[in-house]
Design a protein around this nucleic acid. Structure first.
Lengths: 216, 216
DNA sequence: CGGAAGCTTGATATAAGTCAAGATCCGTGG
DNA sequence: CCACGGATCTTGACTTATATCAAGCTTCCG
């Protein structure tokens, strides 16, 4: 695709990051939007007392911070959660060049709106759902997004997040994440081991995220 | 402003709502963006078991759901938190007509980005801050937004939310909101009564929202 | 002036956090 | 290939922030 503009595509350089390496540091303005080719990343915020909350999760195929193209100035730090290969798309060129078959502005706008709506739902989860519901919803979202990226095979997909990562996503402690996952495993709702997630019955998992089948 | 287009402005009809009346119902597509001229509103989501989480608060002068102009299809219900006067701006016309001196698309895009960033920060609050920090942050945000709307006089602004509303915003129970507010009042951090909020020292309130001066 | 909505307070329950120790996994260097 | 060491996971005992239940009080609107 976009074979007519090879010189532009060539400017989109591939960059590699180690786990825990920052793609963007606090307050930094990298001037580019990263597209993840492989590996996972997140945006987060640190608080006093060593607290950390992840505010956005980026999976393979996702654009990191597409709203930058729309004029947003805010910079959350972005860090690699796994070893990572990303394509850096310079903002200056993006404004005019096509991406994935349509103009970049349209692509980044729809990506931003998707994230916007995901954020709204996550506010609901953090505000009003218990630990079990939140983790079921989180795993369900991850599973469906991985399916959308064509990375689910036989109800199984890669899941490289540690329990500490899940805790920083779900607003819980790692210890409590561990206990809830144990319950979910015991009840056969998920299989989660060796950086791999299997969901025998995605509908059931979604149901549990909505509090329809509370654990006794 | 926009005196050159009187016939367009005339299409933006003023509508009145009672408290608890819906501007937009679940899944409804009203085809317009409301601009609040007076009164407060919110978007929210309901969960099983009567749980409710407010995902966005709209103050006088705010546009409700500006992202609709950008192509978003998602509809959260929007409800009036007070008696309300709003100007309904039909999406069909908005796309081309100017609003507040610049083109509507630009206005709604920047409003959307502001909400986007506010949502990110609220995820941090709900995930990693305790009840006191969350309420301080919430009251601080409200106070500063009201100041921006020119509605703060002598460190005091209208605050028509009930403790139940604050609970649905902060992901707490009304009873616990009551207890925390009592502490804040006792320590002189806020004065809150008769639908009016006074913040003698906004810096101090902001500091408490960041966990810098925990209550003993 | 009556009644509903909202606020306040106390007693008790519970989900989740904290602390601590051991077990397991896994990458790295010898 | 193995051994080491740090990261990660697991589990138990105990604490705490917040929820729940219940009752009385206050405010304010019709």
């Amino acid at each position: 695709m976009t074979a007519s503009l090879p010189q532009r595509e060539s400017r989109a350089e591939i960059r590699l990051f180690r786990r825990h390496q920052h793609l963007v540091r606090e307050g930094e303005a990298p001037g580019m939007i990263f597209c993840l080719e492989d590996g996972w990343a997140c945006r987060y915020r640190s608080l006093s007392g060593g607290r950390r909350q992840i505010t956005g999760l980026f999976l393979p195929g996702d654009y990191c911070e597409p709203q930058w193209l729309l004029g947003d100035r805010t910079k959350h730090p972005i860090v690699a959660l796994t070893a990572l290969r990303a394509r850096g798309l310079p903002l200056a060129e993006l404004a005019e060049s096509p991406v994935a078959g349509s103009d970049a502005m349209t692509t980044m706008l729809s990506a931003t709106l998707r994230i916007f709506n995901r954020q709204s739902e996550w506010i609901v989860a953090l505000g009003r759902q218990n630990a079990c519901e939140r983790l079921c919803g989180l795993l369900c979202d991850i599973f469906e997004r991985m399916r959308g990226a064509g990375r689910v095979f036989g109800n199984r997909c890669p899941m490289p997040l540690t329990q500490a990562d899940l805790a920083d996503l779900a607003g819980l402690t790692p210890v409590h994440v561990n206990r809830v996952l144990k319950q979910l495993r015991t009840r056969g709702v998920i299989e989660l081991r060796a950086r791999s997630l299997r969901v025998p019955d995605p509908e059931r998992l979604r149901g549990m995220s909505l509090g329809l089948a509370p654990l006794p």
